[in-house]
């Protein structure tokens, strides 16, 4: 069984922390994945228009790359990449007419019919390791840390590509790491995503609503798997608090960062230099990492 790994553009730039922590964790767990030697941007969002097949081409091309490598699964870390690739894959598997057109258009590539399964690290950990086994590998438990598991949209909707029907995977992961999970009403709400470019104030307000919901329930930190959520909720938190002055600071981590920490990976693997300063501060206060690493 071969697993190809698709990082996505953002993981090579602003979200290097999401990737570095994930790869360190996978090494610590003894799980081997291989990055595709050649890949292109997946397109970030699924094509929604029935007559627009052109925007399906980018994700399908990546699936072709995975099939070429003999992979039967394509592993993703970034929630929007997961969503885009999984939806294009369903289209290729299920819509014969569109599959024919797309294959005909991409005449320089071998035909593809949806045979590679797109997985996200969360369902990969559930299926290939299991959270009970994961718990036994934890060397630095996050005991007492109240974490809000923020699923957002891309892992759960639309239903046909959801990694699970109801949001439990982040809960189970965090519980395995020894953390206390905090349920909050906005757990699956949208942060405004790329609308931070088109409608900045609206996206900041939507993000503020999520942070407010989590802090009201006593969360000390929030985890995500999406670089857009991380940007809107984390990097843009100062702008967001300019509009919503009463919001306390809430550190936003990638779930992989807490995973790597609990598995005893070197603190450098968390790449906290790319996270907002509060993320390092919270972990240092708990003595989980040295203040200056």
């Amino acid at each position: 069984m071969r697993i190809a790994y698709y990082p996505g553009c953002t993981l090579k730039l602003t979200a290097q922390n999401l990737e570095a922590a994930a790869l360190a964790s996978l090494r610590a767990l003894g799980l081997v994945v291989e990055e595709l030697p050649r890949w292109n941007c997946c397109g970030a969002v699924a094509s929604l228009a029935e007559d627009d097949l052109l925007h399906q081409v980018a994700p399908v091309r990546d699936l072709v790359r995975a099939a070429e490598r003999g992979a039967d699964r394509l592993l993703t870390l970034c929630a929007p990449c997961y969503n885009t690739l999984a939806r294009a894959n369903r289209l290729m598997a299920e819509d014969e007419e569109k599959r024919k057109t797309i294959n005909l258009f991409m005449e320089e590539e071998p035909d593809y019919a949806g045979q590679v399964k797109v997985v996200h690290l969360l369902d990969f950990l559930r299926d290939d390791l299991g959270f009970e086994a994961l718990a036994t590998k934890v060397v630095r438990p996050l005991t007492g840390l109240k974490v809000a598991p923020y699923y957002g949209c891309m892992l759960l909707r639309p239903k046909r590509v959801a990694i699970e029907e109801h949001p439990t995977l982040l809960h189970r992961l965090l519980a395995a790491l020894g953390a206390e999970t905090v349920d909050f009403p906005a757990m699956t709400d949208c942060c405004g995503a790329y609308q931070i470019l088109g409608h900045e104030a609206m996206a900041l307000d939507a993000s503020a609503a999520i942070l407010r919901s989590a802090t009201r329930r006593g969360a000390q930190a929030l985890v995500t798997s999406c670089p857009l959520c991380d940007y809107n909720l984390g990097a843009r938190q100062p702008d967001l608090r300019d509009r919503h002055g009463d919001l306390p600071e809430l550190p936003v981590y990638y779930f992989t960062q807490l995973l790597a920490l609990a598995l005893g990976c070197a603190p450098e693997a968390l790449r906290l230099d790319l996270s907002p300063p509060g993320c390092r501060r919270l972990l240092a206060e708990r003595g989980a990492i040295a203040a200056a690493t």
Binding site: T14, C41, A44, V45, Y194, P227, L228, D230, Y231
Partner: peptide, 13 residues
């Protein structure tokens, strides 16, 4: 400073 995914997604839609 924004993630590339923000630009790609915004320009697509």
């Amino acid at each position: 400073s924004a993630p590339p995914i923000a630009m790609v997604a915004a320009f697509r839609r």
